[in-house]
C-alpha cells in the first residue's frame, strides 16, 4: 500500500485527450521491474489515485511509462501534469500477458483504442525476442486516424518485415489511407495456424468478446486467448472488493485473464 515518489520526466501528446508520460523514481529505491500487462496505482496529490496499465518497455524499468486518457478527475489531473511534477506510484500489480517465448508458436495481438497501451510492453518484448516465436501479427483498431497512438512507432512497426502489423479505423477521414472497418475481418488475412496460436486481446470489453468469439470460430483454443479485465480498482491488491466480477478479483486475478476462465462472466448484465 506504500506509495513511492516519482517525478514526471517526459510528456508527449498522443491525441487530443491522451498523453504518454514517463516517470522516474525520486527516491533511492530500485527500478520498478514489471511484466507486460501489469498496472500501477498512480496518485496525484489532492486529487486521488487511479490504476494505470504500464505501456513502456519492460527492459527499461528505470522509467515508468503510462499512456493516459483524460476520462475523469484523476486521469484529467494526470494528463495535466508537467515535467518535473511529483506524483506517488505503487505497484506493479496484477497478472501479465503470456509472452514467454515459445518457439514455433504464432502470436496474434489485437488492440482496440486505448487498449494498445497495455499491449505495447508485450509487443516490445515480442520484438526484442522475435526469433523465439513463429509469426507475430498485430491488428490495431482505432476510432479515426486522429485517435491513433504512438504514430512514430507505428510507422516503424509497420515497416518491419518480421511483423504483420495492420491498422483499421472505424471511420474514414481525408488524411487516412488504409483499412476501414472492425478489427475482426482483418484476421482473415493474417497468417497464423489457429491451433498453434496465442492471441492477446485488449480493448473495450465488447470488442474483446467479439474478437474472442471470432478467433474461436477460426479454431483458436479458448485457453489460448487472453483478454484484459477492467473494473473499479481501489486497492489493486484484492482487498477492497470493488473490482469483483463473479468469483474474480479483476485486480489480482487479472487484469490479464484467460478468455475461457472469464467467458461466462463477461457480458453478464450488472454482474
Amino acid at each position: 500500500m506504500m506509495l513511492r515518489p516519482f517525478t514526471v520526466k517526459s510528456k508527449l501528446a498522443e491525441t487530443s485527450d491522451t498523453v504518454t508520460l514517463g516517470f522516474a523514481a525520486a527516491d533511492e529505491g530500485p527500478a520498478t521491474r514489471f511484466e507486460p500487462g501489469q498496472f500501477m496505482m498512480v496518485y496525484v496529490f489532492g486529487v486521488g489515485e487511479v490504476p494505470l496499465s504500464i505501456s513502456g518497455d519492460p527492459s527499461e524499468p528505470e522509467v515508468l511509462v503510462h499512456t493516459v486518457r483524460d476520462v475523469g478527475a484523476v486521469t484529467g489531473a494526470i494528463c495535466s501534469l508537467r515535467i518535473g511534477d511529483s506524483v506517488g506510484i505503487r505497484g506493479p500489480y496484477g497478472t501479465s500477458w503470456p509472452v514467454e517465448p515459445t518457439p514455433g508458436r504464432d502470436v496474434v495481438l489485437v488492440a482496440g483504442g486505448i487498449g494498445l497501451a497495455p499491449l505495447r510492453p508485450a509487443l516490445y518484448h515480442l520484438l526484442a525476442n522475435r526469433s523465439r516465436y513463429d509469426s507475430v501479427s498485430v491488428v490495431y483498431g482505432s476510432r479515426t486516424s486522429a485517435d491513433l497512438l504512438y504514430r512514430e512507432e507505428l510507422a516503424g512497426w509497420r515497416s518491419r518485415p518480421d511483423v504483420d502489423f495492420n491498422i483499421t479505423v472505424d471511420r474514414d477521414s481525408p488524411d487516412w489511407v488504409g483499412d476501414v472497418g472492425m478489427v475482426t475481418p482483418l484476421l482473415d488475412r493474417l497468417r497464423f495456424i489457429p491451433s498453434n496460436t496465442t492471441a492477446i486481446v485488449c480493448g473495450p470489453e465488447i470488442m474483446m468478446r467479439v474478437v474472442a468469439k471470432d478467433l474461436i470460430e477460426r479454431d483458436v483454443h479458448p485457453d489460448d486467448i487472453y483478454v484484459s479485465l477492467e473494473r473499479n480498482f481501489k486497492c489493486g491488491i484484492g482487498f477492497c472488493g470493488h473490482c469483483q466480477i463473479g468469483p474474480k478479483f479483476a485486480c489480482k486475478d487479472g487484469p490479464v485473464a484467460v478468455y475461457s476462465s472469464v467467458a461466462d462472466l463477461l457480458g453478464q448484465e450488472e454482474l
Binding site: 474514414d172 476501414v180 475481418p185 482483418l186 482473415d188 488475412r189
Partner: peptide, 9 residues
C-alpha cells in the same frame, strides 16, 4: 471509404 477488404475476402 465505408469498409475495406483484404486478402481472402
Amino acid at each position: 471509404t465505408v469498409q475495406t477488404f483484404g486478402e481472402n475476402s
